[in-house]
Nucleic acid binder design. Structure first.
Lengths: 327, 327
DNA sequence: CTGAAAGCGCTAACAG
DNA sequence: CTGTTAGCGCTTTCAG
């Protein structure tokens, strides 16, 4: 920066100012500085900047895993939105482990990030303690309906389950089964399941659960469907903890000669890339993972720009039922 | 750190040393420092550390998008491996745009990362210039077979196409079609296609391409298959640029009453989570996205530990054909 | 094995 | 609008 200043015949602080608030520098100086930057191929050192400013242009985001399409979508949308503010994403994966999350939060904090984004509302006591006294925005995403650390952006997963049950009942189904995967770890899948069961029973339908401990996949979905049909031969409506499970269920129905939706209606969750293309096209509940990311980015921007320094926000991004031929 | 030092009755530099090389500090001092750290809930400031050391514990990784399952897998594997070294991933998405990549590289450099990871071998001239003089490892992933900036980890995509063609020919198919999506942007899909065409023709089979400009999806796969059958009614073997396309092709065959593999053999690429569960299970070529991530992490560790300061490495992670019932 | 000293490259008052 | 000044919290020789 000193070199740039020298070449542009200004002081280093003018260069610094130009870099942070270009409009606050005279056009002539701006031009000279721009030229010097180009000529010297100057790249600012964000570590130095962050140290001096006691906060960095990094945003830490901690998700269970980006291999999960839901979180990949949010991460991707957030990164796209933050890029405009020249903010960088620092990524961490908890793999659904609260201790892992705690360690990641600790590491994240050492970067003095501009904000920290966590998945879900459930965290270890130490994690809460670590985050209790930070002054940056802490944003919990993809879950609503519990005590928040600071702001939360997402939706109520029990309502997803309720919507699925209501839909199946409306379609005249009365013997419902929920197919779930890894619900001992995936709290949100569990919430969808619980909402489903309760709404189904309230609505006068029978409702059962068939589950598998491993990560959701089409393979497990197929297994779960066969199992469900074995245990509950007169089941007529199936809700799945996500579209991977639903896809496998559709494959299994196809193989077993079970007519969908005539004999069995199927509803998924996620509206993944294949869901509309299935045989038959899958009715599913679509969360807006990208909206969650964009809203999170907006919150962070607002905080950075000093506007709306509101805290403790709760933003419900809702979800929509995509009614297709599988139900 | 000063507070910790004071509480532990040592100097700040001893604390610093303890944090970086615990073994170089006496047990008694170590214990006192540990205790002080715990009591004060001390979190080191990595910005300050990075500034002083002129290199940070961040690794920048730039991929087209984590919404793409291939890159999500690599990112995830890499993060898991780097965590052991207390290295953090800074993520950037190019969305298949070289100018975007260039800007991301510039931003990445301002973090003085320990290494920088790019996707593919094709970059803008400016990007190459930016990276020409850096002393940290520059690792290009997911592509082999062109000029490298520094090290490269991946495989030859034309060989994937060749393997698909060879497989179909071996199955007795002679009228082949390649279904491709977004090949004007996705260089690697194009390479697979080119390898396929060449190998097919060399092998004495007819080979055609049917493509779509948008991102690969099952929906587009279904469209492409219908189109292929319309244009080439006697096609008997289909290779797809990835498993999303193949999934859609299988759906379309199912709807059109086209028997797979009797009438039409289908081969995909990716071995995604649903591929083994399809009807029929999909023959596909499986790259090892996680291995790419682990090898990249290993390279970075080695460099950091001063071992094997080899540069210009080329690591071929290969791929394997998963022969299933669709062919 | 421990400590003193000298910055790393930048930001942020503040004064002009 | 520009420049001066005093650090940000740590690492890294270099002595002891």
């Amino acid at each position: 920066m000193t070199d740039v200043a020298e070449l542009a015949n200004v002081s280093p602080s003018t260069v610094s100012l130009f870099l942070r608030k270009p409009d606050a520098v005279s056009p002539s100086a701006s031009q000279a500085i721009s030229r010097a930057i180009d000529k010297l191929n100057y790249v600012p050192n964000l570590m130095a900047g962050g140290l001096a400013a006691a906060s960095s242009r990094a945003v830490s985001i901690i998700v269970p895993s980006v291999r999960n399409a839901f979180f990949a979508e949010t991460v991707s949308a957030m990164q796209a939105a933050l890029k405009k503010q020249r903010l960088q994403l620092i990524l961490g994966h908890t793999e659904y482990d609260e201790l892992e999350e705690e360690e990641l939060v600790r590491m994240a904090l050492s970067w003095a990030p501009a904000a920290i984004v966590l998945t879900g509302l459930s965290h270890s006591a130490s994690t809460r303690r670590l985050l209790a006294n930070v002054t940056i925005p802490v944003i919990e995403i993809w879950e609503l309906g519990g005590p928040q650390i600071d702001s939360a952006i997402g939706f109520h997963h029990d309502q997803v389950g309720i919507a699925a049950a209501a839909h199946l009942i409306q379609q005249g189904r009365r013997n419902l089964v929920f197919l779930g995967a890894r619900m001992h770890q995936d709290r949100r899948a569990k919430q969808r399941c619980d909402g489903f069961l309760q709404a189904a029973r309230t609505g006068g339908a029978a409702a059962q659960v068939v589950e598998h401990p491993d990560t959701a996949s089409a393979e497990i979905g197929a297994m779960l469907l066969s199992e469900a049909l074995r245990l509950y031969p007169n089941a007529d409506g199936i809700a799945c903890s996500n579209d991977h499970i639903a896809l496998g269920a559709l494959f299994a129905c196809n193989r077993l000669g079970v007519a969908v939706p005539e004999r069995l209606a199927v509803v998924g969750f996620g509206d993944l890339s294949f869901s509309a293309a299935c045989n038959p096209p899958l009715t599913t509940i679509r969360p807006s993972g990208d909206l969650i990311g964009r809203e999170a980015a907006r919150l962070i921007e607002d905080h950075l720009n000093g506007e709306k320094p509101e805290r403790q926000l709760t933003i419900d991004t809702r979800f929509t039922l995509q009614h297709r031929r599988s139900s």
